[in-house]
Design a protein around this nucleic acid. Structure first.
Length: 632
RNA sequence: CGGAGCGUAGCGCAGCCUGGUAGCGCACCUGCCUUGGGAGCAGGGGGUCGCACGUUCGAAUCGUGUCGCUCCGACCA
């Protein structure tokens, strides 16, 4: 733990706290964090160093801004976070949060806390280091994969760094909660998580160590669990709205967390790693990997009754090559993809111009692992090199066909021999019905109708910042978390889990709010509300006025930062724009001579003059205007 | 884990091919000057060239190994 400079560490017996200067002192002292004193007369009164009294000056703050971005930064948020002096990389996927970032993260956490509490959740803090035994109970010690960083202590016992806390929280609750009277219960924490990502990237967007808010609900019945779920869904909607983010809640796959119902909260941004599909007309929205495709009505095309026929297609491996060679549209071709599903080789068929959705196939097959079959396996089951697989005569046990191809005739498929395809294939006629199944297997496209209302589907990129899951009994059964109901009957608790990527929100917020000059923070996320730029030069009077206005703001609980550096104006303007504080007050000699200071809205670039006389009133009117530009 | 690339001053990079004891821009320090959009001049500090071994009279430069980082892919709340 680092302590502010300029004082000594308290002794454990003196119950004093670190304090900002008292109200009386604010007019005379230097207001730097270096001047905090050990305040013993406030013993017992918590004095938070990041409260409004925390006086912030650029000369004292550690904000190492850079003119150039580091070479390894790919996305804007990463570049700007480094350039604006918010973060520094320690090692791959692991970052130090400097004062600016930490302040912004605390602002985010505050909003998260308030809304979680409003929704009835209670804050706790669980350990980062977790015993392996708990993970063995749920089977995830084996199942979770290499993302789970495992290690041993000096006694050779298994431990891991927590990537999530279902095991710990369930262990906690099963030991204490015994009666339905103690339910429902919702516990949350804001804490550092570690996931040993295969390939960390994009700065804070996909780090290995990151800050996450995770909450876990325990209910006595389905009805209660649903209530808990939707309470969290509502809280999340409030949180992301308050933070000024443009987002959508989408239906999502449950992934390795398991369970049966889930929504993701996606911040809309070009650099998002996920694609979401949503409807123009209704409120349907889903992650692309989850978005179901509405079964289309049967196509009234005349059936092709010609027998299947082999045609030579030398060197044509891909759908495009075959289509070009045979002079047909890719839609006339049927793609045969071979997968290794928990060791069983299965074939999946989709139209040539479609993209298979592996998540759908995996869920349909209900298997733990699914991967494209290796070339040698393909050769073994087809008798041909990769590129010529077809369903007819294939040596596999199961063929899953996309619903769109049900009853299709006149298909072009691979012939299971090198450089050849089959024409006039009738999937119903030419395949053994015993091994065929139909399912929704393909990705939805912008041409498909909305599965809910039939409206138009739109696709967009998103960054996942929140995820709510209904877990059901998965963990409570595995770990035997039981309670006695009204009838005195033992039952397992019904759980839900709810995550928010706090540090990822900071990155996502910047992806969504930046311009050529730097970050344009929404006020609720910004490390400071107002930047006061003192363009004093050698003019003591200007410096004094800047200081005065700045103190006035601080004393009125407005989070202000004073740029009191002996820098030229240009440097201060550039840094202020880069850091992205939503409101800038420019205190300069010429304007001051006319009795005004300049106010700039960082987001719109709009400049206004505010009178120094009765400043606070003019400022609050202007401030409201800046706030309003974020709500429209 | 497969493919590719990069490690030279705090940051961004050149030098490497063709071996001869390290340089540029930004940042930093001192002085002068300047003060409304990353000023100018002068002077200055800072690098065992990722690490190890090898080749050589001599290695940032060539070879081998190793560690770290990045990108593409596979993977992933």
């Amino acid at each position: 733990m680092a302590w502010p400079a300029g004082g000594t560490r308290e002794s454990s017996s003196a119950r004093a706290r670190w304090c900002a200067p008292s109200a009386a002192a604010t007019t005379s002292c230097r207001h730097s964090w270096k001047n905090w004193t050990l305040c013993s007369k406030n013993a017992g009164t918590p004095c938070n160093p990041v409260s409004w009294k925390c006086i912030m000056k650029m000369t004292a703050l550690y904000v190492p801004t850079l003119k150039e971005a580091p070479g390894d930064a790919e996305v804007v948020s990463h570049k700007l976070l480094v350039r604006a002096g918010f973060i520094r990389k320690l090692t791959s996927g692991i970052y130090v949060y400097l004062p600016m970032a930490w302040r912004a993260l605390n602002k985010i956490s505050t909003v998260v806390r308030e809304e979680m509490t409003r929704a009835g959740a209670q804050e706790i803090l669980m350990p980062t280091v977790q015993p392996g035994d708990l993970w063995k109970e749920t089977g995830r010690w084996e199942f979770y994969g290499k993302e789970l960083l495992r290690f041993k202590d000096r006694h050779d016992r298994d431990y891991c760094l927590g990537p999530t806390h279902e095991e710990v929280v369930t262990d906690l609750v099963r030991g204490e909660v015994k009666s339905y009277r103690q339910l429902p219960l919702n516990l949350f924490q804001i804490q550092t998580k570690f996931r040993d990502e295969i390939r960390p990237r994009f700065g804070l967007m996909r780090g290995r160590e990151f800050i996450m808010k995770d909450a876990y609900s325990f209910d006595m019945n389905e009805e209660g669990a649903d209530k808990s779920y939707w309470a969290m869904h509502g809280a999340y909607t409030r949180i992301f709205s308050r933070l000024g983010l443009t987002f959508r809640a989408v239906e999502a796959d449950t992934g390795s967390i398991g369970g049966n119902f889930s929504h993701e909260f996606m911040v809309l941004a070009e650099t998002g790693e996920d694609t979401i599909a949503f409807c123009d007309q209704c409120d349907w929205a889903a992650n692309l990997e989850k978005a179901q495709v509405k079964a289309a009505p049967a196509i009234p095309a005349p059936p092709d009754t010609a027998p299947a026929e082999v045609v030579a297609t030398p060197g044509a491996h891909t759908v495009e090559e075959v289509a070009a060679f045979l002079k047909v549209s890719p839609a006339a071709i049927v793609k045969t993809l071979l997968f290794d599903a928990d060791g069983e080789i299965v074939a999946a068929l989709v139209r040539g111009d479609r993209e298979l959705n592996e998540i759908k196939l995996k869920n349909h097959l209900n298997v733990a692992t699914l991967a494209l079959a290796l070339p040698e396996v393909v050769a073994a089951v087809t008798g041909a090199p990769v590129g010529f697989a077809g369903p007819v005569g294939l040596k596999v046990g199961r063929i899953i066909i996309d619903q769109e191809l049900q009853g299709a005739t006149g298909c072009i498929v691979g012939a299971n021999q090198a450089d050849a395809h089959l024409l006039h294939v009738d999937l119903a006629r030419d395949l053994d019905p015993a091994m065929v199944a139909h399912a929704d297997l393909r990705m939805i496209t912008a041409e498909d109708p909305c599965p809910a209302c039939g409206g138009a589907v739109r696709l967009a990129k998103g960054i996942e910042v929140g995820h709510v899951f209904k877990l059901g009994l998965k963990y409570s059964e595995a770990m035997d978390a039981k309670f006695l109901d009204e009838q005195g009957k033992e039952r397992h608790m019904i759980m839900g889990c709810y995550g928010i990527g706090v540090s990822r929100i900071l990155a996502a917020c910047i992806e969504q709010n930046h311009d050529a000059d730097g970050i344009t923070f929404p006020p609720p996320v910004s490390p400071f509300e107002v930047a006061v730029l003192s363009l004093a030069g050698n003019d003591e009077a200007v410096a004094a006025k800047a200081q005065e206005l700045y103190e006035l703001l601080c004393n009125n609980r407005i989070d202000a930062l004073l740029d009191d550096r002996a820098e030229r104006p240009g440097v201060k303007f550039k840094d202020a724009d880069l850091i992205g504080i939503p409101m800038q007050l420019v205190v300069g000699g010429k304007a001051l001579a006319r009795g005004v200071v300049e106010a700039k809205n960082r987001r719109t670039g709009e400049k206004t003059e505010l009178p120094v006389e009765n400043f606070l009133h003019a400022f609050s009117v202007w401030r409201q205007g800046v706030m309003d530009c974020w709500t429209c």
